[in-house]
Design a protein around this nucleic acid. Structure first.
Length: 470
RNA sequence: GUGGCUAUAGUUUAAUGGCAGAACAGCGGAUUGUGGCUUCGCUAGCCUGGGUUCGAUUCCCAGUAGCCACCCCA
């Protein structure tokens, strides 16, 4: 079949045409030989793009970002969490120690490098370690406890990008340091639940307790013993986990390993009294608040600092087919971390949410987001004198709180009105030669097109009458 | 780190082994001081490098990038 096609199509051009083509080609070859230097000079400079897994957040995304960030911040304030910003760059050792050398995040996902001062630094893969570092560094143990932090900012992980996973992404997070009561665990969970619900996202909460170092050791031994007998059936990763991070055995998604999970010992059964009571406490508070959660005895988190309560938030899709890899957020208690980073023994609990993932879900669910504020006034000007006069007027209007836009270079009134229309303003002020001479200005109401002439010196007053500023 | 899919104007896309066409956006017009609708025009593109071929945007190979899944997590 293809041979016939080729033959047929080869016949298509006339012989003369082919000769022409050959000549053209020859000419091209010649010209190439003659002007190789010119071509090099003409060559445009290379263009650039964002690094893999990193994105520009463009104006079209603004309303989502503003909406979610503002709501988060307001929520945080209502719950008594105060804003903190820590540097994006930290000493690499901070995360080695806090998150754990054997975790995926530290062992293969950190953007780390040696700086000009031969310091080992890295872009933070998460913020809890930084917040705790800050707590210790500034002696915040002297503040009334707990100290409650709210943060927002970019995090970096050298992963392979895919849906909802970027190398630079943004987290909204809470940390409450200095409180051991289960009430704070419940408050944080309740916060996230309400926050996401308020955004219009239904979530499923998975919760577990992984105990304290003491009872976890006892449990680990049990788990290792259980899995050691079944080692030959485990996947390669799990065989490594058995030695390095046995808790993660429970987290494996390999089919072959699933079968063993069923009968594996569960940590809940091995918690010491203190941990058990604490966990029961958290659940009681949650029951009280009416939050719905799933006890998930296999939930283990990928960061070493967690103790006792751990939890993750998943979108609750109506279709029932859950994609369990796209957690919107997760967190838990980390009672050992402050001490581990050089502070006094201090209990603490926190959570982090993925902003990009939240926005992704908002879009997926077609949830309406309030539009950003549109400009109030467009100022159109005609002629040199008017332009100068309008320049001052615009500043006066802005001082009075109006959101004013104008065109810097467009001259025709038609074009300026066109722009005003695209900007969606309610009123356009028109200042032309004639108005400058008369000491007036035209106020055009865009929707109906009604115009009135106003005393130039009373422009601000008049506009205040027409537009009620928030 | 493993695997799959894709690559055409700024964006969304069509077709094709021999002129790459459209829509939206942008820019400029339709008596130059009045927007939305309409209409006309302009600008702008075959990811890179090899190979097959008289001829490749099209077929083949490699690279690169993007998307997606595993993994991991937010």
């Amino acid at each position: 079949m293809p041979k016939i096609k080729l033959k047929m199509k080869n016949k298509k051009p006339a012989k003369e045409d082919i000769q022409k083509m050959k000549k053209e080609k020859a000419a091209k070859v010649q010209s190439k030989v003659e002007q190789p230097i010119k071509e090099k000079k003409i060559k445009a400079p290379r263009s650039f793009q964002t690094l893999k897994g990193m994105k520009d957040i463009l104006a079209s995304e603004n309303k989502y970002w503003e909406y979610v960030k503002t709501k988060a911040k307001n929520f945080a304030l209502n719950y008594g969490y105060e804003s903190i910003e820590t540097p994006i760059l930290e000493e690499t050792a901070l995360f080695n120690r806090a998150v754990g050398n054997e975790t995926d995040i530290v062992s293969k996902e950190m953007f780390s490098f040696v700086d000009q001062g031969e310091e080992n630094v890295c872009l933070r893969p998460e913020a809890t370690a930084s917040v705790v570092r800050s707590y210790v560094q500034h002696g915040m143990l002297n503040l009334p406890q707990p100290v409650k932090f709210f943060y927002f900012g970019p995090m970096f992980r050298y992963d392979r990008p895919q849906a909802g996973r970027l190398r630079m992404f943004h987290q909204i997070g809470l940390e409450a340091i200095g409180e051991e009561s289960p009430i704070i665990d419940a408050e944080i969970i309740f916060f996230v639940y309400n926050f996401l619900k308020d955004l219009g996202l239904k979530t499923v909460i998975e919760i577990n307790s992984i105990g304290c170092p003491k009872c976890r050791e006892a449990y680990k031994t049990k788990l290792i013993n259980y899995y050691r007998d079944r080692k030959s059936g485990l996947c390669e990763d799990c065989q490594k986990r058995l030695v390095k991070n046995p808790l993660r055995l429970l987290d494996c998604k390999e089919e072959g390993c699933q079968a063993y999970k069923e009968d594996a010992p569960q940590i809940v059964d091995w918690l010491c009294d203190e941990c058990k009571n604490h966990f029961v406490g958290v659940l009681e508070y949650l029951d009280e608040s009416g939050v719905i959660y799933n006890l998930n005895p296999r939930l283990v988190r990928g960061l070493d600092y967690y103790t006792k309560t751990v939890f993750e938030f998943f979108p609750d899709n109506a279709d029932g087919v859950e994609k369990r890899q796209d957690a919107l957020g997760g967190g838990g208690r980390y009672d050992g971390l402050v001490e581990y980073l050089g502070g006094r023994p201090t209990p603490a609990c926190g959570v982090a949410l993925g902003l990009e993932r939240i926005i992704l879900k908002l879009k997926e669910n077609n949830i309406e987001i309030p539009a950003l504020r549109k400009p109030d006034i467009f100022l159109a000007q005609l002629g040199e004198q008017a332009r100068k006069k309008s320049f001052i007027l615009i500043e006066e209007l802005r001082k009075s709180g109006f959101y004013v836009v104008h065109s810097c270079s467009k001259k025709g009134l038609k074009k300026q009105l066109e722009m005003a229309n695209k900007d969606g303003v309610k009123y356009t002020l028109i200042l032309g030669q004639k108005e400058v001479i008369d000491g007036t200005i035209i106020v055009r109401e865009m929707e109906g097109g009604a115009q009135e002439i106003v005393d130039f010196n009373k422009t601000v007053q008049e506009m205040k009458k027409k537009i009620i500023l928030q």
